[in-house]
């Protein structure tokens, strides 16, 4: 479904990704694990078109999308939950959802999907007219997920869901993502919290200073001594 082929990416002069290749098949739940600064978010940004790779190719459902502007990718079926939530602070909850569904041309579908989001998160319905910045971190995370679901994505890209959230909210969010996955959405989850990510994902990549060092099923990764020492805590 999504292929990254030998991607090199830079921030200014420093290289963030070296020769990164990923292959995500439809229906999978894949995670990318790595320490802070390993380049996990850069991979997400390359996929979303927010960082342009210097070399390599990105293919989505057989299409070469490497040089496509970000705003055209939204319509391809990507749902993006960025690192740190990044809801629009001075827009209301409902306006945030509308921007999430910006590419939906049919107003009826937009309204229906907003209702769906409210069914899934009744809390957001209560706060629909409230500015996003006035909500708690957990509520903003719900909004970020709901916003990503607005265009009915086929592939959900989630960047660091555990960042700045209480453990109970992290578990809640991950359970929700698992449910979405079971409903048929392909999931790519980038996480620092390897323990939790491997519990939910089927397969994982280990990223170390911009390079993929390991790729395996979650059950194998949990047993891998190196991984346990580096990311799971002894």
């Amino acid at each position: 479904m999504l292929k990254l082929i030998e991607i090199d990416a830079f921030y200014g002069k420093s290289q963030a990704l070296h020769n990164v290749s990923l292959d995500i098949r439809a229906g999978e739940f894949v995670t990318i694990l790595g320490a802070n600064g390993a380049g996990k978010s850069t991979i997400m940004k390359c996929i979303m078109g927010l960082v342009e790779p210097k070399a390599g190719r990105i293919e989505y459902e057989g299409l070469d999308i490497t040089r496509r502007p970000a705003w055209e990718r939204a319509a391809l079926g990507f749902g993006y939950v960025p690192e740190g939530r990044r809801v629009f602070p001075d827009l209301t909850v409902e306006e945030n959802l509308k921007i999430g569904g910006y590419k939906l041309t049919d107003t009826k579908v937009l309204v229906r999907n907003i209702e769906k989001a409210y069914d899934m998160f009744p809390r957001l319905k209560e706060r629909r007219r409230q500015l996003a910045k006035t909500m708690s971190g957990g509520e903003q995370q719900m909004l970020a997920i709901a916003r990503a679901l607005m265009p009915e994505p086929k592939l959900l890209l989630i960047d660091e869901i555990s960042m700045g959230l209480m453990p109970i909210m992290v578990n809640h969010s991950l359970a929700l993502i698992k449910k979405l996955h079971e409903e048929g959405i392909t999931v790519l989850l980038v996480e620092q919290n390897a323990n939790k990510a491997l519990k939910f994902a089927q397969r994982g990549y280990i990223l170390k200073t911009g390079r993929i060092t390991l790729e395996d099923t979650s059950s194998n990764l949990i047993c891998n001594k190196e991984v346990v020492e580096a990311y799971l805590g002894a």
């Binding site: 502007p69 970000a70 705003w71 990044r86 629009f88 001075d90 827009l91 921007i99 910006y102």
Partner: peptide, 23 residues
């Protein structure tokens, strides 16, 4: 709709792009 896109872009250009707003 274009006004909403403007406001979103002013608040977070990168994310607005990712949501499909043609900057």
């Amino acid at each position: 709709k274009i006004g909403l896109a403007w406001r979103a872009t002013a608040q977070d250009l990168e994310i607005a792009k990712a949501m499909g707003v043609n900057i």
